[in-house]
């Protein structure tokens, strides 16, 4: 980790093959994120924010340049090392929640801890703590289809946070929620950011999310066009 940063991105370029040529999704990105940030990648569709989030999440690799997450260069990681990085340090929150439908809320939140081979007693406590953070302790036995949109997203947040990751990546987390639920979710994440000191990075173009950000990184056509601390949140 350089200069206390847990994420360092230098000269990052990402190209995707399109027909006989290439489409450049990210074009020379230089960014770094410190511990406990509450930052957002903001921009219209196609600006490259999800691609950047995927690279930070070691789900994709750079075409050129370097992305270092928790001291590990994403482009040089094997499948196994990338999985270890995600398992130990990263939490994901999706636009469509993506809770596993056949499992209960408790089991969905428990799943990352099973991969970490945590013993049963500690696991149960960690799951209940996570559900307590998001206010879902009364839904432990519910299946995802029995939850509202807001409850589902809170379940997804609990799943992302249960292992207390250093970094949480949230891709359009409020896109499917109404205003009230969006604020509730964002307040929950803001509190977790403060309590657990996890770095939150959002990909969004939702104004409701943007107003909660402490740092706003604007992207357009794969380039960073603005990187600012939000005055009223600093």
């Amino acid at each position: 980790m350089n200069n206390g940063h847990i994420i360092n991105i230098e000269g990052l370029i990402k190209r995707f093959p399109v027909g006989s040529g290439f489409f450049t999704a990210l074009d020379g990105i230089d960014l770094s994120f410190g511990k406990g940030e509450f930052a957002g990648l903001v921009g219209p569709s196609g600006s490259g924010k999800t691609t950047l989030l995927n690279i930070i999440g070691s789900l994709d690799s750079p075409s050129e340049g370097k992305a270092t997450v928790m001291g590990q260069s994403v482009g040089e990681l094997s499948h196994k090392k990338a999985a270890d990085l995600r398992n130990h340090n990263l939490g994901f929150i999706f636009q469509t929640y993506n809770l596993l439908p056949v499992y209960t809320v408790f089991e969905n939140v428990e799943f990352p801890l099973l991969l970490l081979k945590m013993d049963k007693v500690k696991r149960k406590k960690a799951v209940m703590d996570a559900l307590d953070w998001v206010g879902l302790t009364d839904k432990v036995k519910s299946r995802p289809k029995q939850l509202s949109g807001g409850e589902s997203q809170r379940g997804a947040i609990a799943r992302a946070m249960v292992k207390r990751p250093q970094i949480v990546l949230a891709d359009e987390p409020t896109a499917n929620l109404d205003s009230e639920n969006s604020h509730h979710i964002l307040q929950t994440m803001e509190k977790l950011n403060q309590d657990l000191e996890a770095t939150f990075i959002f990909a969004t173009h939702d104004d409701k999310v943007i107003q909660y950000l402490k740092r706003k990184i604007s992207l357009a056509d794969g380039k960073v066009i603005n990187d600012e601390l939000t005055p009223n949140r600093t």
Partner: peptide, 10 residues
């Protein structure tokens, strides 16, 4: 996809 994102090995 979810299981990979959570950190399960391929």
């Amino acid at each position: 996809g979810i299981r990979l994102a959570i950190g399960e090995y391929k």
